[in-house]
Amino acid sequence: METLTINNAAIKVNEEGYFTDPSQWNEDIAIEMAKQQNIDLSGKHFEVLHFLRNKYAEDVPLTIRKVGKSGIVDIKEFYKLFPGGPLKISSKIAGIPKPVSCV
């Protein structure tokens, strides 16, 4: 367990940088997290992040396919919004654990 300081808040993260307590998340922290990945968050980004957080809260296992069927973005747009591994990067910025699915 490590601690990350963002906007003067001490965020608890695991060794890969994923939040261990999703309730510590807010949009300002997400903006800072995204900057580290060279992403400027837009409205679409936030819609995806909230979708991921809601699904996580409902205990729904997350996959790229589910995000593609969310009605917010299609899969191509999802890859464009979060380049270099869309689901793992968006989950990190959304303050939820790394998804474990193989699809």
Binding site: I64, G68, I75, Y79, S101, V103
Partner: peptide, 17 residues
């Protein structure tokens, strides 16, 4: 398990580059 049918899987792969 949210594994798509074959043709949809190919669409996903193409969309992912």
């Amino acid at each position: 398990l949210d594994i798509p049918p074959i043709t949809e899987f190919f669409e996903m792969i193409e969309a992912g580059g």
